[in-house]
Design a protein around this nucleic acid. Structure first.
Lengths: 167, 167
DNA sequence: TAACAATGGTTGACGGCGCAAAATATTGAA
DNA sequence: TTCAATATTTTGCGCCGTCAACCATTGTTA
C-alpha cells in the first residue's frame, strides 16, 4: 500500500494529455457525424476516396492510409456499400484487387458531412488556439507522426488512384 | 465522379495529424504492454488507482476520469480482478458504491509495466522533440483538453479517494 | 412514514474491429 | 507446364466497449 511515486512522470502526463484530447474530440465529433449517418472511420474512408482523381482507391491502399486492418476496411466498405455511398469494382490489371469507388450520392454525403465537421473542428480544436500555437502544435505532431507512422507519409501522396503505383 | 476539390482543408489535416499520431502511438505501445499482459485501458485504470493515497477509487470516479462508460469500467475491473490485480470492496458510507482496490501484486505489475512504458513514450513521443517543442505541444494540448473535456480537469485532482468528494 | 426521483453499479444484447485462416489470383522457377 | 511462393481480399471467431434495461440504495418531499 505504502506511498507510491513512480507513477507520476511528466512524460506520462504528456501522452495522457494527447489521449484525453483525442478522446474528447472524438466524442464531440461523433454526435454531429451521427446526424449524417457516419462514423469517424467511415468519414475518413469517404474522404480518402474523395481526395482522389477518380474517387477510387484499392482496398489495400485504404488499409495502409487509415491504419485499419484490411479486414477492417472490408467491413467499413461493406457498410458504405450497403448504404449506397460506395461501390466495388474489380481491377482489370490485377484481378486480385478491388477498387472502392465513391458514388455520386457518396460524394454528396461526404461533402455535406465535411462542411459540418469542419465547423466542429474549428470550434473544438483549431479555433481555440492562436495561429502560432496551432503552428507549433502541428509541427510537433508532424515530427512524431513521421517517425511513428512513416507509411502514412508516403501513403497520402502515393495514393494516386490512376495507374496504381507499385509499392 | 468529376473533379473534387472540396475536401482539402488545413483544419482537417490538423485533426488528421492528431488522430494519426494517436493511432501510431497506441500501436507502438500495445506490443510492450501486451508483454505485461495489459491493455492501454487496463494500464490507465491501474495507474489511476496507483496514484491514489489508498490505492482505491470508486467505480464511478474511474469512469469519470477515463471516459469509459461505467459499464466499461465494470468490465475492465472484472478482468483485472480475475487477474488478481484489483479487488472490489463495498463502500461503508454508501452501500450502493464499490471501491476498486489495487492489490499488492497489482501495484507490482503496474510499476513494472509503467517503467517499460515510459521508455516507449520517451522513444516514440517526448524524446523526439526539443524541450521547447514539447512544451509548446503540451501547452496547446492542455488548452484544447480544458475545453473539450472539463470534467477530467476537476477529476484528476478531485479524485481524493479518502472521504469521497461530493460532485 | 410513504412515495418517488436520483444515484451507483451490473448485466444482456449488440456492433465494430483485429487476428488468423481461408479463397482467389499472380508471379517465378524448375 | 506445373508447382511453390506471394499478394489481395474476405470470412470465422473472439474480444472489447457501448447502450439500454435493470436492481439496490439514498435523498427528498409531503
Amino acid at each position: 500500500m505504502a506511498t507510491t511515486r513512480i507513477i507520476d512522470d511528466d512524460r506520462l502526463t504528456a501522452v495522457g494529455l494527447l489521449v484525453e484530447v483525442h478522446r474528447g474530440l472524438t466524442n464531440k465529433f461523433a454526435a454531429r457525424l451521427a446526424r449524417h449517418g457516419l462514423s469517424e472511420n467511415e468519414l475518413e474512408i469517404l474522404l480518402r476516396l474523395g481526395r482522389t482523381p477518380n474517387c477510387q482507391l484499392r482496398m489495400s491502399d485504404l488499409a495502409a492510409q487509415t491504419s485499419l486492418t484490411t479486414s477492417g476496411v472490408t467491413r467499413v466498405v461493406d457498410r458504405l456499400e450497403r448504404a449506397g455511398l460506395v461501390t466495388r469494382a474489380s481491377c482489370d490489371t490485377d484481378r486480385r484487387g478491388t477498387w472502392a469507388v465513391l458514388t455520386d450520392t457518396g460524394l454528396e454525403r461526404v461533402t455535406a458531412a465535411v462542411a459540418d465537421h469542419i465547423d466542429d473542428v474549428d470550434r473544438w480544436y483549431t479555433g481555440l488556439l492562436t495561429p502560432e500555437q496551432l503552428a507549433a502544435l502541428t509541427e510537433a505532431l508532424r515530427i512524431v507522426r513521421d517517425t511513428v507512422r512513416p507509411e502514412a507519409v508516403a501513403g497520402v501522396d502515393a495514393a494516386r488512384a490512376r495507374p496504381r503505383a507499385e509499392v
